[in-house]
């Protein structure tokens, strides 16, 4: 492939990645309570960093030294661990009985098994 085309692909992945990482953090800062805040970082930030890592794979593979795939390992690791972190944080919050807004009153009906 010509270099210019690869550069366009790398730029697209970088921009998508940066945008999603930013959206994840906006969610973290903006949403009203802990459980809604969990959604931003687990999904958007993980995909954002994944996009930047794919850009890195493309960039280093397009150079002379040949294929460079080890960034995929970080992507894989992040996708495997982000839900575990979210699950544990949610568990900790349920354990501490984090005050939830009115929308979450149902929790007392569904989640009180401790």
């Amino acid at each position: 492939m010509p270099d210019a085309l690869i550069e366009i692909f790398i730029s697209i992945f970088l921009l998508i990645g940066g945008a999603f990482a930013l959206i994840g953090s906006i969610g973290l800062a903006r949403l009203p309570d802990l459980f809604t805040r969990l959604h931003g970082p687990t999904k958007a930030t993980t995909l954002g960093v994944g996009g930047i890592l794919i850009a890195s794979v493309l960039h280093f593979s397009s150079r002379a030294e040949g294929l460079s795939l080890h960034e995929l390992l970080v992507t894989l690791f992040l996708f495997a661990t982000a839900p575990v972190s979210a699950y544990l944080i949610a568990c900790a919050a349920l354990h501490l009985r984090t005050p939830a807004p009115e929308d979450h009153r149902r929790l007392d009906r569904t989640g009180g098994e401790e």
């Binding site: 959604h39 687990t42 999904k43 996708f79 839900p83 699950y87 568990c91 349920l94 989640g111 098994e113």
Partner: peptide, 16 residues
């Protein structure tokens, strides 16, 4: 639980 956390609008919070 892992799949649900990564897909639309849901986060798994606790297995009973």
């Amino acid at each position: 639980a892992h799949s649900l956390s990564l897909t639309p609008g849901t986060v798994s919070s606790k297995v009973s």
